[in-house]
């Protein structure tokens, strides 16, 4: 998705994990991805640069859809959609 399209998205749930040192942003996404119903769009806000790489890699491994990432001034907004039950 383009950045303009991502900005138009209304997520089912937004996880603000910008200050989450422990257990960390991806751990929060895993928890949410497991409990939200199929079709949900999840926005993860992360202050960890590694998330922009780790999150798509994990989504690919578990066959969920990575919609894209918006780089804000000091954090990243990562969008995904749950497409199958896990």
């Amino acid at each position: 998705m383009t950045e303009a399209e991502l900005r138009e998205i209304e997520p089912t749930v937004t996880i603000d994990a910008r200050d989450a040192y422990c257990p960390g942003p991806l751990m929060e996404l895993i928890k949410e991805m497991r409990q939200q119903p199929v079709g949900s769009i999840i926005e993860l806000m992360s202050g960890d640069a590694g998330s922009a790489k780790d999150v798509p890699e994990w989504l690919n491994k578990v066959h969920q859809e990575f919609l894209g990432v918006i780089s804000e001034s000091d954090y990243w907004r990562i969008f995904s959609r749950k497409i199958i039950e896990i």
Partner: peptide, 9 residues
């Protein structure tokens, strides 16, 4: 669960 051995870098 994630790409490293603990959530804290």
């Amino acid at each position: 669960p994630i790409a490293k051995l603990h959530g804290i870098d």
